[in-house]
Design a protein around this nucleic acid. Structure first.
Length: 238
DNA sequence: AGATCGGCCTGGACGC
DNA sequence: TGCGTCCAGGCCGATC
């Protein structure tokens, strides 16, 4: 089920490769291959035919190249849809703007975050205001914008800071090829270095690099949530 | 509308 | 050593 319809790519040519949020989109003429790596997925090309643990899908290309999906926890998906028809993948259909594109417009972000009564962290994780942020980068962006993760209804100044922080964190993380704890690898199977630059995520009990306060971990929206109580004070109600 | 919880999977870390 | 429990980078759907 998770890879249902994958047989449909047989004989197709990859015309182009794109990404929307955390989804990879391979255009194959009239159909499209949609890939999400979930928590533990890796996608890489190889000429070796050696067996790999947790290998779920292998796409053989002409020549000797294989495109391999390895995914220990099987939360990733590979799905074939008619081109551009994402009806069965609602998250993709409702996906917000790309954070590093001009479509991620600051005034629109200010409006949306001030109106919503949902805590800012789950709001960002929903992918609808802006695409591509997961648990790590949400925590890091909120820290840099000095906003408590449970804040509801951002002020204009906060939202503007957060808009900038999201872009800054993602640019830095991309420059360092992502964040590797254990499983994550890029398309060349390299680890990402951004782990070393994390300010709050996975730093529970360690000291804030800005104010020296102990980083706290709590559960919010069912997700481990890291923040600095010194830098990210809950906004006082008046 | 919005929040919480369980489920999907597997394996590593940790406590006893 | 061995077993049980908890936890994890994502996301969806049921339920309150």
């Amino acid at each position: 089920v998770r890879y249902a319809g994958i047989e449909g790519v047989r004989g197709c040519t990859v015309r182009s490769v794109a990404r929307r949020g955390k989804y990879l989109l391979l255009a194959l003429g009239p159909i499209e291959l949609v890939i999400h790596l979930g928590m533990s997925g890796r996608l890489f090309a190889t000429t070796k035919r050696s067996r790999v643990p947790h290998c779920r899908v292998i796409l053989h290309f002409s020549g000797r190249l294989d495109l391999v999906l390895v995914d220990r926890r099987r939360f990733g998906i590979m799905r074939v849809v008619p081109s551009g028809q994402y009806g069965g993948i609602r998250a993709l259909q409702l996906m917000g703007p790309e954070p590093l594109s001009a479509d991620f417009e600051v005034n629109q972000f200010v409006q949306a975050t001030s109106r919503s009564r949902t805590a800012i962290k789950p709001l960002l994780l929903r992918q609808r205001l802006v695409a591509g942020l997961g648990n790590i980068y949400v925590d890091e962006a909120l820290y840099r914008a000095r906003i408590h993760p449970a804040t509801r209804g951002l002020e204009r100044r906060q939202a503007t800071r957060l808009h900038g922080a999201i872009r800054q964190v993602l640019r830095e993380a991309i420059a360092r090829r992502g964040t590797t704890f254990s499983l994550y690898r890029d398309g060349l199977l390299r680890e990402g270095d951004y782990y070393k630059a994390l300010r709050v995520f996975d730093r529970e009990g360690q000291l804030c690099r800005t104010c020296g306060t102990c980083i706290v971990k709590m559960v919010l929206a069912g997700r481990g949530t890291h923040f600095c109580p010194g830098c990210q004070a809950v906004r006082r109600r008046r």
